[in-house]
Amino acid sequence: METTAREFNQRSSQILAAAARGETVVVTKNGVAVARVVPVSDDGIPPYPTDAMGPIELPELGLPDLANEEIDDVLRGMGS
Rank of each mutant, 00 (worst) to 15 (best):
M1R: 08
E2N: 06
E2R: 10
T3E: 06
T3G: 01
T4M: 09
A5R: 11
R6Q: 15
E7Q: 14
E7W: 00
F8N: 08
N9Q: 15
Q10A: 10
Q10W: 05
Q10T: 12
R11Y: 04
S12V: 07
S12G: 04
S13E: 10
S13P: 02
Q14T: 06
L16E: 04
L16W: 06
L16F: 08
A17T: 00
A19H: 00
A20V: 02
A20C: 01
R21M: 00
G22V: 03
T24W: 03
V27N: 02
T28S: 03
K29G: 01
K29S: 04
K29I: 00
V32A: 05
V32F: 04
A35W: 03
V38A: 09
P39R: 08
P39S: 03
V40M: 06
S41G: 09
S41Y: 01
S41L: 05
D42Y: 10
D42W: 06
D43C: 07
I45N: 07
Y48R: 14
T50H: 12
T50P: 02
D51Y: 12
D51P: 01
A52L: 15
P55Q: 15
I56T: 14
E57T: 12
P59N: 05
L61K: 08
L63P: 06
L63H: 13
P64T: 08
A67L: 09
N68Q: 14
E69I: 12
E69F: 07
E70V: 06
D73H: 13
D73I: 09
V74R: 13
V74Y: 13
L75H: 06
G77S: 05
G79I: 07
G79S: 10
S80G: 12
